[in-house]
């Protein structure tokens, strides 16, 4: 008896799907979006449920090979949830400070208002003013910097070309005139 060839096509293996139920009272919705976003390259992510009671996150594999073990994926997703929840907390906690820094930077850039005024404290009174470093005005500091820079020029890069080669060019021109005179005498 001859074996019949199986003509039925093998059905393609369906993509793995994991469902993770998240408690929105523990993890904020922003954290769930953030964690889901991390998996967009590896899985098809779909959100469903009730954002007040329970959120169902479906992760369907795009490619079996890159998707890996379903338990691992679930664990990774839960880790990302914790990660994004913490980030969210930090963002909330530092919101005012961040706003202040950005505001101060913008106002400071305009140059009209001193956004970081120096407040006098009791400790400041004990400081001897002679010990403090002398601060010149901006023009004076710039001039001093320039002169220092000109002084430290061992290769004479900053010296103008005319000054540097003035002596050489004078001696060359004298030699040329002497030669010309000699040739004129010889012709005569």
């Amino acid at each position: 008896m001859t074996k019949r060839k199986n003509t039925v096509k093998k059905s393609q293996p369906e993509n793995k799907e994991i469902k993770v139920v998240v408690n929105p009272k523990i993890y904020p919705l922003e954290a769930i979006y953030g964690a889901a976003y991390v998996f967009l390259d590896r899985a098809y992510v779909f959100l469903d449920g009730d954002p007040d009671k329970k959120i169902i996150v479906s992760l369907k594999s795009k490619d079996e090979a890159s998707f890996g073990d379903s338990r691992e994926i679930k664990s990774e997703f839960l880790n990302e949830l914790v990660n994004y929840s913490l980030r969210q907390q930090i963002v909330k906690r530092n919101a005012k400070l961040r706003e202040y820094i950005v505001g101060a930077a913008l106002l400071g850039a305009s140059g009209e208002i001193n956004v970081f005024p120096v407040t006098e404290t009791e400790e400041d009174e004990d400081i001897n003013p002679e010990e403090l470093p002398v601060v010149e005005d901006e023009a004076g500091v710039a001039a001093a910097d320039q002169s220092e820079a000109w002084e430290e020029d061992p290769m004479q890069i900053a010296v103008p070309w005319e000054e540097k080669y003035a002596a050489d060019s004078a001696s060359v021109s004298n030699a040329e005139t002497a030669e010309k005179k000699k040739t004129q005498k010889a012709k005569k």
Binding site: A36, L40, V45, F46
Partner: peptide, 13 residues
């Protein structure tokens, strides 16, 4: 459909 769902999620994020 799955790709649309992914893109929609990315937009929401």
């Amino acid at each position: 459909a799955d790709e649309i769902a992914n893109r929609a999620l990315a937009e929401m994020k």
